[in-house]
Computed example of a mutant assay.
Amino acid sequence: MAALTVDTAVAAVRGAAAQAAAAKARAASAAGAGSVRFEALAKTYQSATGAVRALEDIDLEIPAGRIYGIIGRSGAGKSSLLRTINRLERPTSGRVLVDGQDIGRFDEDALVELRRRIGMIFQHFNLLSAKTVRENVALPLVVAGVPKRQIAERVDEVLALVGLEGKHNVYPSRLSGGQKQRVGIARALVHKPEILLCDEATSALDPETTLSILKLLRDINRSLGLTIVLITHEMSVIREICETVLVLEQGRIAEEGPVWQVFGAPKHDATRALLQPLSRDIPEDIAARLVPQPVAGGETVLELHYTGGESGGPDLSRLASVLGTSVRLLHGTIDRIQGHAQGTLLVAARGVSEDDLATLGGHVGSARILGHVATDV
């Protein structure tokens, strides 16, 4: 009888601890939480050839409600960093704080609650082929012991949210790649998380489907207010959806900032390399005609680069007033990112001097003379 009393007491203590952890988690979520902070984070893996340093000196904060992108080349440490947020990876040193709580101190009960507050979607969907859409989405709630009626209601809600009404009883083999990812997103949202982690979520999709999934994620962020943290190796994905971007290089922070700022004026070689696929070279027909010395009766070709920090973006009337009314636009690639116009213009004008370039001042991020051409270009 005494042993039974001790066991009962231990169970009661554990139950109280679990309830306290759950209450604390719910309170954090109710406060509109979803912030993540890394403090002096490092991660080292042991291999047959020795220690491999995957992350080092990671110190940054992801504010609640933000769409935050992490990019880097293969082996940069993106996945390792992402998986520390829900403690699928335990840091070797340093701390990860979710809603101000050091998750490294969580016991198993608190860790279960944490992972219900953090949804995750994957590159290859991770759906169970023998289960229907409804069953795949419902699985986290079934495991949590949620009553059947509540499960049915919640599954209907999230399938409608991701645009899969009428697909409840369909098996994954009958779905397109985009539909499979929508099922994965619905499953990740079924616990009403405050943070959504996206592990290369669009890498297996074609460009058109990628855009539709990114639009869905943006809509979810706006309607639900949850924090989205995504990793990718594609700068086009960062440009399309993220507000802030972190560039990782060999496990360290290369640079971080608003997407328009990092795209417009990259500071690190790794960032410039990642942006290279988005840049366009000088058109071949123009490049073939360029010569280093002025041509009699010809024009000077200028490359004008806009970083996004210029007031109002490209001002064509200003260009005409500085370079002369005969200024001609030869080629242009101007994007708008987060309300900032950035990109490059190639223009041709006569009688351009270095003083003219300086006069452009804050209206152009940078300007340089590429060469000279005859006027028939």
Rank of each mutant, 00 (worst) to 15 (best):
M1N: 15
A2L: 07
L4K: 15
L4F: 15
T5C: 12
A17Y: 03
A20P: 03
A22C: 09
A25T: 14
A28F: 10
G32R: 13
S35P: 11
E39C: 05
Y45K: 11
Q46K: 15
A51W: 06
A51T: 13
R53C: 11
A54E: 00
D59E: 13
L60E: 04
E61F: 10
R66C: 14
I67E: 02
G69C: 14
I71E: 00
G72S: 07
R73S: 12
G75Q: 04
G77W: 01
P91E: 00
S93W: 14
D99C: 08
R116N: 08
R116E: 04
I121C: 01
I121Q: 00
Q123I: 04
S129I: 04
A138E: 05
K148E: 15
Q150C: 03
V155C: 04
E165A: 13
N169E: 15
I185Q: 00
L189C: 00
K192D: 13
A201E: 01
T202G: 03
A204V: 04
D206T: 11
S212N: 11
L217H: 01
R222F: 09
G225H: 03
G225M: 03
L226N: 02
H233K: 00
V237H: 01
C242T: 09
E243N: 12
G257T: 10
W260E: 00
Q261W: 12
P266C: 06
T271G: 06
A273G: 13
P277D: 12
R280H: 15
I282M: 02
I282H: 01
P283M: 08
E284F: 07
D285H: 15
A287M: 14
R289H: 11
P292Y: 11
G297P: 11
E299G: 07
T300S: 10
V301K: 02
T307L: 10
S311Y: 14
P314S: 05
L316A: 09
S321Y: 13
V322E: 05
S326N: 09
V327K: 04
H331V: 04
T333E: 11
Q338K: 13
Q338R: 14
G339N: 07
G343L: 05
T344Q: 13
V347A: 08
A358I: 12
L360E: 02
G361S: 11
G362L: 10
A367R: 05
H372W: 07
D376R: 03
